[in-house]
Amino acid sequence: MAFALHMSQWQAQHDQPGYFYPEVSLAQAREKRADKIASQGIVPVEQKQDDKRKQQYSVIFDAVLYWCFQRIRRA
């Protein structure tokens, strides 16, 4: 019974005027994004590694900063 209720809610939500399914397939959207990134001269693998490195440095910096504040507070 609950499943039927959820299905009817989904159908009611998606059968309303103004709701349109995407005209672009997922594969086309991914290809378009890859072309856009390539046109900007970005290598996705290097970008991902750089983002990961920045995140790791941020975590390390936050830990050191927290340690310094704890030392100052105790003094």
Rank of each mutant, 00 (worst) to 15 (best):
Ala27Asn: 07
Trp67Ile: 06
Gln9Pro: 02
Phe20Met: 13
Tyr57Met: 05
Gln9Arg: 13
Val45Ile: 08
Arg73Ala: 10
Ala2Glu: 13
Gln9Ile: 13
Gln47Cys: 03
Gln70Phe: 03
Lys52Arg: 14
Ser58Asn: 08
Gln9Lys: 13
Asp35Asn: 13
His6Gly: 04
Phe61Cys: 08
Leu5Glu: 12
Cys68His: 06
Gly18Ile: 07
Val45Arg: 08
Lys54Glu: 07
Gln70Ala: 08
Ala2Phe: 06
Ile60Arg: 12
Tyr19Asp: 09
Gln56Leu: 15
Gln16Ile: 05
Gln28Ala: 12
Glu46Gln: 06
His6Arg: 12
Ala27Leu: 09
Ala29Trp: 06
Lys36Met: 00
Ser39Tyr: 01
Gln47Ile: 01
Cys68Val: 14
Asp51Ile: 11
Gln16Thr: 08
Asp35Gln: 15
Gln56Ile: 13
Phe3Cys: 05
Phe61Trp: 04
Ala38Arg: 04
Tyr66Thr: 07
Ala12Leu: 05
Gln49Ile: 02
Lys32Phe: 04
Ile60Gly: 03
Ile42Pro: 02
Pro22Glu: 13
Ser25Pro: 01
Val45Met: 04
Arg73His: 07
Ala27Glu: 15
Gln49Val: 03
His6Gln: 11
Ala4Val: 11
Tyr21Cys: 08
Val64Ala: 12
Val64Glu: 15
Ser25Arg: 04
Met7Val: 07
Lys52Phe: 11
Leu65Asp: 09
Ala34Arg: 14
Met7Ser: 09
Gln47Thr: 00
Val45Ser: 07
Val64Phe: 14
Ala27Val: 06
Ala12Lys: 10
Glu23Ala: 13
Ile42Gln: 00
Met1Tyr: 10
Gln40Trp: 03
His6Asn: 10
Ile37Ser: 01
Gln11Ser: 06
Ser39Gly: 02
Asp50Asn: 05
Ala2Gln: 13
Gln56Met: 15
Ala34Cys: 04
Lys36Gly: 00
Glu46Ile: 01
Leu26His: 08
Gln28Ile: 02
Tyr66Gln: 05
Asp51Val: 08
Val64Ile: 15
Asp62Thr: 09
Asp50Leu: 03
Ala12Trp: 05
Gln28Met: 05
Lys52Val: 09
Val64Arg: 11
Ile72Glu: 11
Lys36Ser: 03
Phe3Arg: 14
Trp10Val: 14
Met7Gln: 13
Tyr57Asp: 03
Tyr57Gln: 05
